[in-house]
């Protein structure tokens, strides 16, 4: 057929715009890599393992920030996972359709609240509660890794709930009906039939939520304390949770980026922070997306 020989204007325009978008993203990656090059040359792997960041002395180690990022994300997931998946299970397995939609609407609204509003709530309410709750541990203020983790946990709830609900809903209704027809209770059906088949979707949801937790800036920035070089005495100790800390994103969001522009190495170190964050989040997101695509193994 000769009909498709000459590309149409629509195709050319679409293809061009798509290429623009793709290359813009690739360019972004390239800029990050190129501009961070000096710090890789000067620090190498010690960029990750160094425990000190003093830009006046040209010391650039991000280990404490990695630690803070991981702790905040872990606390957030620890809080949000049971609540988010529990809500999704309740909504999709036990609630009639109408009520399920009502819960979904509530969750969508929760998802729409801007992070700066969460930050404001964190500063005004959560920070004081945490300060009072942590009195036995003698905290300096309510700005702690724990505060940031809890706040991000609340922010993750809608993401987790929505993605988990998708995963649970993708298990065919016939499977539930078959289990109920055998005399299993709704709980047994959920635990033995639905959840085992939905696990790729649930794991994917966790990974995607984890990616969001790592990248969240504004809310964390406002309540984490932004204390540099907080390295715990023991990695397993819970004590640092009651202290201020710094995460990759809160560092990047701070005023230091404006100071850094004059000094090539300092600037490279800041951009490298962004690159590390990008790689971490993109890896989690990619893994989560790929796992979620694995459809449940049922006819």
């Amino acid at each position: 057929m000769s009909r498709w020989k000459r590309p149409s204007v629509t195709l050319v325009v679409c293809a061009l715009l798509t290429l623009v978008a793709v290359f813009a993203f690739m360019g972004m990656l390239a800029v990050f890599v190129a501009q961070s090059a000096p710090v890789w040359r000067s620090e190498g792997w010690s960029f990750f393992t160094q425990k000190q960041w003093f830009y006046r002395q040209q010391l650039f180690g991000i280990a404490p920030m990695l630690y803070g990022t991981v702790v905040v994300a872990a606390v957030a997931l620890l809080v949000a996972t049971p609540a988010g998946i529990g809500t999704a299970v309740f909504a999709s397995e036990f609630l009639p359709r109408r009520a399920r939609l009502a819960v979904k609407v509530a969750i969508e609204l929760l998802a729409g609240i801007p992070s700066v509003v969460y930050g404001l709530l964190g500063i005004v309410l959560l920070r004081d509660w945490i300060y009072r709750a942590l009195q036995p541990f003698d905290p300096l203020s309510g700005d702690t890794l724990l505060t940031a983790g809890l706040l991000v946990g609340v922010m993750l709830l809608p993401t987790l709930m929505t993605l988990s609900d998708d995963a649970l809903r993708s298990v065919p209704a016939s499977q539930r009906l078959a289990a109920r027809g055998l005399g299993l209770t709704a709980t047994e059906t959920a635990l033995r039939v639905t959840l085992p088949q939905a696990w790729p979707g649930l794991l994917g949801a966790l990974l995607l939520a984890g990616g969001r937790a790592l990248g969240e800036m504004i809310a964390v920035f406002l309540v984490v304390g932004r204390q540099d070089n907080q390295w715990p005495e023991s990695l397993l100790s819970l004590r640092p949770m009651a202290e201020a800390g710094q995460t990759l994103s809160s560092k990047l969001g701070g005023p230091e980026i404006n100071i850094a522009y004059g000094d090539p190495l300092h600037w490279a170190a800041m951009v490298a922070l962004g690159l590390v964050l990008l790689v971490l989040v993109a890896t989690l997101t990619l893994a989560g997306t790929l796992i979620r695509r694995r459809k449940p193994h049922a006819p």
Binding site: V22, F25, M28, V31, F32, Q35, L208, G211, R212, L214, G215, E216, M217, S249, L252, G253, I257, V271, G274, L277, L278, V281, A282, L284, T285, L286, G288, T289, L290
Partner: peptide, 20 residues
Amino acid sequence: LFLQVLNGVPSLLFGLIGMI
């Protein structure tokens, strides 16, 4: 897949790249 990954990129990084 590219769009999904783009969707996950923290908004902070978009700001950073815009600045650069």
